Simulated scan of single mutants.
Amino acid sequence: MTVLRLPLILLLAGVFGLAGCSVHQPVSLYQLDSGSPAQPAQSAGMAVLLGPVSIADYLQRETLLQRQPDGSLQASTDGRWAGSLSSDINQLLLRQVAGHLDSQRVVLAPATLGFTPDVQVLLSITRLDSGESQPAILDAQWRLIDRRGQVRDNRIVHLQEPHASGTAAQVQAQGILLQRLAEQLSVALKPLANQPPVAEVPRKPAPKPAAPVEPEKPKIPMASPIRTDMEVFRF
Score class of each variant (00 low, 15 high):
residue 56 A to W: 01
residue 46 M to K: 08
residue 110 P to T: 01
residue 172 Q to A: 10
residue 179 Q to T: 07
residue 193 A to C: 07
residue 228 T to D: 10
residue 47 A to S: 15
residue 97 V to S: 01
residue 183 E to Y: 12
residue 200 E to M: 15
residue 187 V to T: 15
residue 154 N to G: 08
residue 133 S to F: 12
residue 133 S to Y: 11
residue 38 A to H: 12
residue 176 I to M: 13
residue 120 Q to S: 14
residue 8 L to K: 08
residue 58 Y to D: 10
residue 18 L to Q: 15
residue 17 G to N: 07
residue 89 I to Q: 00
residue 198 V to G: 08
residue 123 L to C: 02
residue 177 L to A: 03
residue 183 E to I: 10
residue 212 P to Y: 07
residue 13 A to V: 14
residue 72 S to A: 06
residue 53 V to R: 01
residue 168 A to G: 10
residue 25 Q to L: 14
residue 234 R to Y: 02
residue 39 Q to H: 10
residue 217 K to Y: 07
residue 227 R to E: 10
residue 229 D to P: 01
residue 15 V to I: 15
residue 67 R to K: 06
residue 82 A to P: 00
residue 151 V to W: 09
residue 230 M to Q: 12
residue 175 G to V: 00
residue 42 Q to N: 14
residue 167 T to A: 11
residue 55 I to D: 01
residue 37 P to D: 09
residue 20 G to E: 09
residue 91 Q to T: 05
residue 125 I to H: 00
residue 104 Q to F: 07
residue 3 V to F: 14
residue 180 R to I: 02
residue 222 M to F: 08
residue 171 V to D: 01
residue 163 H to P: 05
residue 15 V to P: 05
residue 164 A to Q: 15
residue 177 L to C: 03
residue 132 E to G: 14
residue 4 L to Q: 13
residue 69 P to F: 07
residue 19 A to F: 14
residue 10 L to H: 05
residue 168 A to F: 05
residue 198 V to F: 05
residue 107 V to M: 15
residue 137 I to H: 09
residue 141 Q to Y: 09
residue 182 A to Y: 00
residue 179 Q to M: 08
residue 38 A to P: 07
residue 123 L to K: 00
residue 67 R to L: 10
residue 31 Q to D: 06
residue 154 N to V: 10
residue 203 R to M: 11
residue 127 R to A: 06
residue 66 Q to D: 13
residue 220 I to T: 10
residue 5 R to G: 11
residue 220 I to G: 04
residue 70 D to K: 05
residue 35 G to V: 05
residue 42 Q to F: 06
residue 23 V to R: 15
residue 23 V to S: 14
residue 86 S to H: 00
residue 35 G to D: 07
residue 189 L to Q: 02
residue 79 G to C: 05
residue 145 I to G: 06
residue 225 P to C: 03
residue 192 L to N: 07
residue 42 Q to G: 05
residue 43 S to V: 05
residue 25 Q to F: 13
residue 126 T to K: 02
residue 69 P to N: 06
residue 2 T to W: 13
residue 38 A to V: 09
residue 161 E to Y: 06
residue 232 V to W: 01
residue 54 S to T: 13
residue 234 R to Q: 05
residue 175 G to I: 01
residue 169 A to C: 08
residue 12 L to G: 12
residue 60 Q to Y: 00
residue 130 S to N: 06
residue 67 R to A: 09
residue 140 A to P: 01
residue 224 S to Y: 09
residue 50 L to V: 04
residue 218 P to T: 09
residue 27 V to P: 03
residue 8 L to T: 12
residue 129 D to I: 04
residue 192 L to P: 06
residue 98 A to H: 03
residue 224 S to A: 11
residue 92 L to N: 00
residue 54 S to F: 03
residue 213 V to G: 03
residue 153 D to A: 12
residue 133 S to A: 12
residue 6 L to N: 13
residue 185 L to A: 04
